[in-house]
């Protein structure tokens, strides 16, 4: 851990730069009120994370994060925002104390546990010693494809990935159940108590019950 190579210095500069940008973007997300700006900054945050993943040798993860986090997630959030609000209300100051207290306490607890973590980049730490390195040795022998991540994903942990695919499938199914594949497309219909109702969009919730009547009578 004492020797310093030129690669380490350039990695250090990259890491510190990415960390600084990530912290600035995260704080901006907390401070801003415009939902459009917040959603776009979330995409920026994902893209910065993807860049840092490359510096941490996780090329596959960086690829996925750039495509999913910065691309599709931002598009979905924009689509949802278009159907909802543009601005979020500022949080009153007396409602900020509780969350700040919880967050600071949780942060201190995590920082207290930090000296137990292995040193960053330690190849002999418990996390990097057993099964992960075993996959590297065995992929060359058994699967014979260069990308170890693909080999572990599709073969050694294929059952796991099957579960993930089913989760994604059920998420798509859930969105279909909530929104409908064609949306309401301007046609909302329902049949409460045998009465057929048509409306351009779903009616708002009943805020106050009907005066002296309603379903009970």
């Amino acid at each position: 851990m004492i020797f310093v190579s030129s690669a380490m210095v350039s990695t250090l500069i990259l890491d510190v730069g990415f960390m600084a940008m990530l912290v600035v973007v995260a704080f901006a997300i907390v401070r801003l009120q415009s939902l459009f700006a917040i959603v776009m900054l979330q995409g920026v945050y994902s893209l910065l994370c993807a860049a840092w993943f490359v510096s941490l040798d996780a090329v596959d993860v960086a690829f996925t994060e750039a495509a999913v986090g910065a691309g599709v997630a931002t598009i979905l959030m924009l689509a949802a925002m278009l159907l909802a609000d543009r601005e979020s209300k500022p949080v009153p100051i007396n409602r900020q104390f509780g969350p700040i207290l919880v967050v600071i306490l949780a942060g201190i607890a995590l920082l207290f546990a930090l000296p137990d973590m292995p040193t960053v980049g330690d190849g002999n730490s418990p996390a990097n010693s057993y099964v992960g390195m075993d996959y590297i040795a065995r992929t060359a022998d058994e699967i014979k494809i260069p990308n170890i991540v693909t080999a572990v994903l599709a073969s050694y942990r294929g059952y796991d990935t099957f579960g993930e695919v089913v989760v994604i499938f059920s998420a798509g199914l859930g969105v279909l159940l909530l929104l409908g594949l064609d949306g309401n497309a301007g046609k909302w219909k329902a049949k409460p108590n045998g009465i057929q109702l048509y409306a351009p969009s779903a009616p708002p919730a009943r805020i106050k019950p009907d005066n002296d009547g309603g379903e009970s009578s």
Partner: peptide
């Protein structure tokens, strides 16, 4: 995700592509 990937990093190593 960042925390997980940071744990898996090995200094002066290559990305896991043989």
């Amino acid at each position: 995700f960042l925390m997980y990937i940071t744990i898996g990093k090995v200094m002066d190593a290559q990305p896991p592509i043989l």
